[in-house]
Amino acid sequence: MYDFSYHKPGSVADAVKMLGADGEAKALAGGMTFIPVLKQRLNKPSAVVDLSAAGLSGIKLEGDKLIIGAMTTHATVASSPEVKKAIPALAHLANNIGDRQVRSRGTIGGSLANNDPSACYPSAVLALGATIHTNQRKVAADDYFQGMFATALEPGEIITAVEFPMAERAAYAKFPNPASRYAMVGVFVAKTAKGVRVAVTGAGQNGVFRHAAMEAALSTSFTPDAIKSVTTPADMMNADIHGSAAYRAHLVGVMAARAVAAA
């Protein structure tokens, strides 16, 4: 790891100020991806701004909205009575991210800011049509994800919370990478007031994406059978030592069917 200066501001405003003052500064959330990256010397920030004291943790139900603070850990989401009541699929997803220790420290905001193509959360946020709150604005999920590790966040912009609408039905099914246990294919299906949405993580070449054909089929009938004949184009898929594009395309269908059955 290269050395850096460490700051732990007590508010979002201070954090923003620190990040704004130094273009080489980086925000630190749970650090579950960022610290390994630093250890591998793949990133050389001048300063690390730890958001853990900025008052960004917490879960609340406001009417028909579930609002999760950006620094809320996966373990907290997984065990939250509010989340379990409002969107149990989200608690289930959080409960299967990484391992127990990762869930102790990893956060929803960190996951979304990083937008790792094999992270679980982006699929839920996109499928549920959630809204990302930042210190500057509110961004719709459809506008937020912009390809692998790319998001709508501007330099110095911090995610403060994520706002989820209620779902009539929702579920997440993941096929983990055998080695890393990250999602090799993860499919989140959701039926909300705005309709059916299907988001796929892990598989695509450009990070999380919506599966239009499946959404159309499930809008007609929200059953596993409805998507039996829906195919996923393999040329959109990743290929690596763990599986071909064709295999990933196939798994998208299998995971989607399992998610629909579970929803």
């Binding site: 460490y6 732990k8 630190l28 650090g31 579950m32 610290i35 390994p36 250890k39 690390v48 730890d50 853990s52 373990a75 127990r100 220790q101 990762v102 102790s104 420290r105």
Partner: peptide, 13 residues
């Protein structure tokens, strides 16, 4: 009170 991986946490944290 929570189990964490001490290789993935800064001492200052």
């Amino acid at each position: 009170g929570k189990s964490v991986k001490s290789c993935t946490m800064l001492a200052v944290q």
